[in-house]
Design a protein around this nucleic acid. Structure first.
Length: 342
DNA sequence: ATCCAGGGCGGGT
DNA sequence: ACCCGCCCTGGA
């Protein structure tokens, strides 16, 4: 992995086509980050780290330290500050940042499906699907239902404060995401009055209890096929079809999970369906149209649609470019395999 | 004031 | 199976 360098407890991603902090953190897959002048500080597992794209002066420093070569100063370099050593990378970050996946190849293949997807893939270039911790994603997306991003972020932050283990850090006070047992032990009062999660408080505690006592076994779910895993997650209170798909896509590595939220409804109707309101049918169409990587295609479509407010009232589409022909099955099968072996 | 924000639940057909 | 009203909360 020559794209990854190590120096002074930091990890550097050099000359990668698909690795932009903004697009990684601001596509809705994770809520636990804060941005300050391009520096994204976040907690992942036991790590408190920051991600940023380096400017030329910063890259010249790395040349001085023999981290990158003079020739590489002209290439993009993304720094993971306080990411740790090569061992931390191998054990954690490599999986977290989905480094096994060839995103350039993936974009190329999905862009071939149709012009709408091609536009979304180009716009979202730089995005990656993070492999986040299963339980954290479950709680986070239960909280996301019928909610807005600011309040989701605030709620998760408070939950970590109220129930998570404190991290030892000079950068400030941060908390690890609590375990199922820790969330199960939270009081409804704290969740409603401090975390402000509203009626989701009961869902969160109950779901954590079911997971903690293995009434719903996350390891077993991980071993199930997609359909069975989706069905099993629906047993958790506050988890419906859309949330279950978010959980499977972002927390369980299921690239065929196709979450249908309001933005996906808008963009799928604008591009392909016209006026379909049934989420189940939209999901079925997405899977048929985009194949095994439908969930990832969905994430690029979602990002593009939300950034442009596509399909919203103040940005209504012209009818003539609203419906495209159905995708052919052989094309769908052809793009199914883009994940290279290690 | 009314609506809505990355839906889910429960009761009704 | 579908459909529909309702739900904490707070900003527009």
């Amino acid at each position: 992995m020559n794209n990854v360098r190590f120096w002074d407890n930091h990890i550097y991603f050099v000359n990668m086509t698909d690795f932009e902090p903004k697009k990684i953190f601001e596509n809705g897959q994770t809520f636990r980050w804060q941005e300050n002048q391009g520096l994204y500080t976040f907690v992942a597992g036991p790590y408190l780290a920051s991600l940023k794209t380096l400017d030329t002066a910063e890259k010249n420093q790395l040349v001085f330290q023999n981290v990158i070569t003079t020739a590489e100063v002209d290439s993009p370099v993304v720094a993971l500050l306080n990411g740790g050593t090569q061992q931390d990378y191998t054990n954690f970050w490599h999986g977290y940042f989905d480094m096994e996946r060839d995103y350039e190849n993936l974009r190329h293949n999905l862009a071939a499906v149709d012009q709408h997807l091609a536009t979304a893939m180009e716009y979202g270039k730089g995005m990656r699907i993070l492999n986040q911790e299963f339980f954290e994603v479950i709680i986070s997306f239960i909280l996301s239902a019928n909610n807005n991003i600011k309040r989701i972020q605030q709620g998760i932050s408070k939950i970590t404060e109220l129930a998570g283990d404190k991290m030892d850090s000079a950068a400030g006070v941060y908390y690890k995401f609590p375990t199922p047992a820790q969330v199960a032990a939270m009081s409804i009062e704290d969740l409603t009055q401090i975390a402000k999660v509203g009626y989701r408080a009961l869902y969160i505690v109950k779901a954590a209890q079911m997971i903690a006592n293995q009434e719903v076994d996350l390891e077993e779910i991980s071993a199930m096929d997609y359909e069975a895993a989706h069905k099993e997650l629906l047993r958790l209170p506050g988890v419906g079809p859309k949330v279950a798909d978010c959980i499977l896509l972002f927390g369980n590595g299921r690239e065929m999970a196709f979450p249908v939220d309001t933005w996906v409804i808008k963009v799928m109707n604008l591009y392909y369906l016209g006026n379909e309101k049934n989420s189940k049918k939209i999901k079925a169409d997405g899977l048929q149209r985009f194949g095994q990587l439908a969930g990832i295609a969905q994430q690029y479509l979602f990002y593009h649609a939300r950034e442009h407010k596509i399909g919203s009232k103040e940005n209504v589409a012209k009818p003539e470019d609203s419906v495209a022909p159905k995708a052919k099955k052989d094309k769908v099968n052809a793009i199914a395999k883009t994940k290279p072996k290690a």
